[in-house]
């Protein structure tokens, strides 16, 4: 903290990014620099070495946006965790979910959370939603070398845009591409099945509690067909993690509400007694 030369102070003062600060002063702390030695791509994929986080669904509803994630992480054919949480609040008005290499995804999430809070404290104002999406895209891009080794992580960002007064959704690719999604989107191994369900279940101007039902049901359908996605676990009382974001901020949907939604779906489907 002792000032060096004047020019260095000015350039430091101009930076409001926590990730940039880390890159300059503590490069070893960046998730992209944590790897020790690069495995040659020829040696094959490293994907089987670490737990893999699976399905995330996200959808807009009247006055906000919602994100839900199942509770399973897999390592090859093994269930690595039944309790993992893959949806996190970014700040007051945004949430993000991760799919792919779980460890890198959790690191990325932590860095992103600090990045937003750091900006807010230094600048005295919150980052715009587009700003958040761009920062996240840059962080995903930094992980590209690891992604090529098979340790890819792709987030999904949902937030309430306080300027436009609406919920918005952003998906990303490993090269740092940032795509705004309409209505609903899902990522991860079960995303194909979840998206199919969402197409039938999602309607414009859903209210918040119906949106929670839709999210739980689409995850149920994903778990039905994808072995890497966990369904509601009645024995262990495990339900998906769901966050909603509206003009009042991000809120974690309480367990009780999720249990009700999950048991409702199981009940209805049992009564129907059909194949799907």
């Amino acid at each position: 903290m002792i000032p060096e030369d004047a020019a260095a102070i000015v350039s430091r003062a101009a930076s409001t990014s926590f990730a940039e600060h880390l890159g300059r002063d503590h490069p070893e702390l960046l998730p992209s620099n944590r790897s020790t030695g690069i495995i040659a791509p020829a040696a094959g994929s490293a994907a089987g070495l670490a737990p893999h986080a699976t399905t995330i669904v996200s959808l807009t509803f009247s006055g906000g946006v919602l994100m839900a994630g199942d509770r399973r992480a897999t390592m090859g054919n093994i269930i690595a965790s039944r309790h993992i949480e893959k949806v996190f609040p970014g700040d007051l008005f945004s949430v993000l979910g991760i799919a792919g290499s779980a460890g890198i995804g959790l690191d990325l999430t932590r860095l992103f959370q600090v990045e937003l809070e750091h900006y807010e404290k230094i600048e005295g104002t919150r980052m715009s939603l587009d700003g958040k999406a761009n920062r996240l895209a840059a962080m995903v891009r930094q992980n590209l070398p690891m992604a090529l080794q098979g340790l890819a992580v792709v987030p999904l960002l949902a937030g309430f845009d306080t300027e436009r007064r609406e919920g918005r959704l952003f998906s990303f690719d490993v090269t740092g591409g940032r795509y705004e999604e309409q209505e609903h989107h899902s990522i991860g191994s079960g995303s194909v099945f979840a998206r199919g369900a969402l197409k039938k279940l999602w309607k414009p101007n859903l209210d918040e509690s119906t949106a929670v039902q839709v999210a739980v049901e689409s995850l149920y359908d994903a778990a039905d067909d994808d072995s890497a996605t966990g369904g509601p676990d009645v024995v262990r009382q495990l339900w998906p993690v769901i966050y909603t974001v509206n003009s009042a901020g991000a809120r974690r949907v309480p367990e009780r509400e999720l249990e009700e939604a999950a048991l409702g779906i199981i009940g209805r489907r049992s009564v129907a007694g059909r194949e799907a």
Binding site: L22, D25, L111
Partner: peptide, 16 residues
């Protein structure tokens, strides 16, 4: 400048 340095110190420490 001291406040910003303090925020950086705290965020780095809390992150690492």
């Amino acid at each position: 400048s001291l406040r910003q340095a303090g925020v950086r110190y705290a965020d780095v420490r809390g992150y690492s």
